[in-house]
Amino acid sequence: MSDTIEARLASLGVTLPTPAAPQANYVPVVRTGNLLFVSGQIPIGPNGIEFVGKVGQEFGIEEGRACARLCGINIIAQTKAAIGDLEKVVRIVKLVGMVNSTPDFTDQPKVINGCSDFLVDVFGDKGRHARSAVSVASLPFGVAVEIEAVIEVA
């Protein structure tokens, strides 16, 4: 993959949003050394918060994947705001994906793949990462997915 990260985003039809401001007492990104810790990102789109509800109830796996992809877009937006140039991303190190799902729903990994697949599409092999995908009883604002990231940067 010789084209730029910005070109790959454009080819995927993605325009990065202005990153959302924190809604509580935390910062969106902390840099220590060459690592960025990106706070949990929720599915905020052009019209505000999207995908309010539970996977396995209001949403199926495909809608959950779309929600996770939107979280991934917001992770990249926060990363760009923190470092300025996405070419400085060395590797997506780890994701922690939380799925607001019904007690009997067990396909959390398939949902979080919406973000994982997107990050590989954008960053190529640098987008391959370690990951957790867990179910939770609820998430802020009732959203279906929240994802945090650890990213190595130059």
Rank of each mutant, 00 (worst) to 15 (best):
Q57G: 11
Q57R: 14
Q57M: 13
E58F: 13
E58D: 15
F59C: 04
G60V: 14
G60T: 15
E62Q: 13
R65H: 13
R65P: 06
C67S: 15
R69L: 12
C71V: 09
G72K: 00
G72Y: 03
G72N: 10
I73N: 02
I75M: 11
A77Y: 07
A77K: 07
Q78C: 15
Q78E: 14
K80Q: 15
A81K: 08
A81Y: 11
A82R: 08
A82F: 10
A82V: 03
I83N: 02
G84V: 14
L86S: 03
L86V: 04
E87K: 09
K88Y: 08
V89I: 10
R91Y: 06
I92E: 03
I92V: 15
V93L: 04
V93G: 06
K94N: 11
L95R: 02
L95I: 08
V96T: 08
V96Q: 03
G97E: 05
M98V: 10
M98N: 10
V99M: 00
N100E: 02
S101G: 04
S101Y: 03
S101I: 01
T102I: 12
T102V: 12
T102Q: 05
P103I: 14
D104Y: 06
T106S: 11
D107H: 08
D107N: 11
Q108H: 07
P109Q: 05
K110M: 10
V111N: 02
I112K: 01
N113F: 04
N113C: 09
N113E: 05
C115A: 15
C115V: 00
C115P: 01
S116I: 03
S116K: 04
S116W: 00
D117S: 12
D117Y: 08
F118E: 05
F118R: 12
F118M: 12
L119T: 01
D121P: 08
F123G: 04
G124T: 11
G124W: 07
G124E: 11
K126S: 14
K126F: 12
G127R: 10
H129A: 04
H129N: 10
H129W: 11
A130G: 14
R131N: 13
R131K: 14
